[in-house]
């Protein structure tokens, strides 16, 4: 039976799980970004290496990446149900709201992990399947169970989990993971801290209540703003590296340069602000919100530039390279 009394004891009617609750368990918004970056890796690999792939197999491999992401999300929600119930932002998730029992979440996560890796192996190759398995374990076990509640560097180290998809996408096509694929990995790796810390500046009170050692909780808002700026200053030039290797052409170079400058400008705004200070409704909080929203757009447009160049024949080599 899949219904439990809601966490909110004041409500009288029990909540019954719908298909939508199981979709929520898979963190669909994260899944979309994962699929998009994985697809960018896949399309770039085809464009750069000239290796062709059956479109149906490419679609199934992409589905496997989506399922793998969903599986890791379900495992994360299973493990974090206790702290999700404490934080307002996450208290409406399927487990703390009482819609889905924890056992069903872990069962879904484990079954989908197996299904996604198996599908990936069938549709592509062992390297891509192994990378997918590693990324699920990295997020579901290493980040969720070992890092998140232990170190303020949880986001930095754990960020690697979200950086795997373009490498997996590349491996789907070539069966290997060359430098270009790891450059895309590095971009997402360095993008994660400013993206997530901008959000945690707004919600550090909640993390403190749940006893999660996020950087603003352990080291204060000032240190977090400094770290956001440092990682953004590392990210902006790093995002131009694919131009040097030939992975990115003119369109990518223009996108990386313009988007990088805007990202740095917004990070400087946060750095100069009082974001993370109490009360939350300040100019600084607005700056942090702007940075968080733009960071999503940044990653989306950067990888969209790669898809346009390699998937739609708009690749032009940067003059002088």
């Amino acid at each position: 039976m899949s219904h439990v009394e809601t966490a909110d004891m004041t409500s009288e009617a029990p909540r019954y799980a719908t298909a939508g609750d199981y979709v929520q368990l898979m963190k669909p918004r994260i899944m979309m970004l994962v699929v998009f970056t994985g697809l960018a890796g896949l399309v770039s690999a085809v464009g750069v290496t000239g290796v062709s792939i059956n479109p149906l197999m490419a679609a199934i491999a992409t589905l496997a990446i989506a399922l793998g992401s969903g599986a890791a999300g379900a495992i994360n929600m299973w493990y974090d149900a206790d702290i999700d119930a404490i934080m307002k932002r996450t208290s409406t998730r399927p487990i703390p709201s009482g819609a889905v029992p924890r056992e069903e979440a872990i069962a879904l996560g484990l079954v989908m992990s197996g299904v996604s890796v198996l599908l990936m192996w069938l549709a592509s190759n062992a390297v891509a399947a192994a990378l997918l398995a590693i990324s699920i374990a990295y997020y579901g076990w290493f980040y969720t169970m070992l890092l998140k509640r232990r170190t303020p560097q949880n986001i930095v180290i754990g960020g690697a989990a979200g950086a795997f998809p373009p490498v997996i996408g590349w491996a789907v096509v070539t069966g290997s993971a060359p430098l270009d694929a790891w450059l895309l990995f590095a971009i997402i790796f360095f993008w994660t801290p400013p993206h997530f810390w901008a959000l945690s500046l707004l919600a550090h009170g909640e993390y403190k209540k749940a006893n999660v050692p996020m950087l603003p909780v352990t080291h204060g808002a000032g240190t977090t703003r400094n770290q956001i700026l440092v990682y953004t200053l590392l990210l902006a030039p790093l995002a131009l590296a694919p131009v040097l290797t030939g992975l990115g052409g003119v369109i990518y170079a223009a996108a990386a340069a313009v988007l990088g400058l805007v990202f740095v400008k917004l990070a400087v705004d946060v750095w100069r602000s009082d974001a993370g200070a109490v009360p939350v409704q300040t100019e600084g909080a607005k700056a942090a919100k702007r940075l968080f929203a733009f960071s999503i757009l940044y990653l989306f447009l950067l990888f969209a530039a790669l898809i346009v160049e390699h998937g739609f024949g708009a690749y032009f080599v940067m003059p002088g390279l």
Binding site: T18, I60, A123
Partner: peptide, 25 residues
């Protein structure tokens, strides 16, 4: 009713998985 719907989705997911494996093979 909720259980019936969930079972239906589960059946569809299993069916989809079988089809995917078959097509891939």
């Amino acid at each position: 009713q909720a259980q019936k719907k969930r079972n239906l989705w589960l059946a569809l997911a299993l069916f989809g998985f079988v089809i995917l494996v078959g097509v891939t093979t």
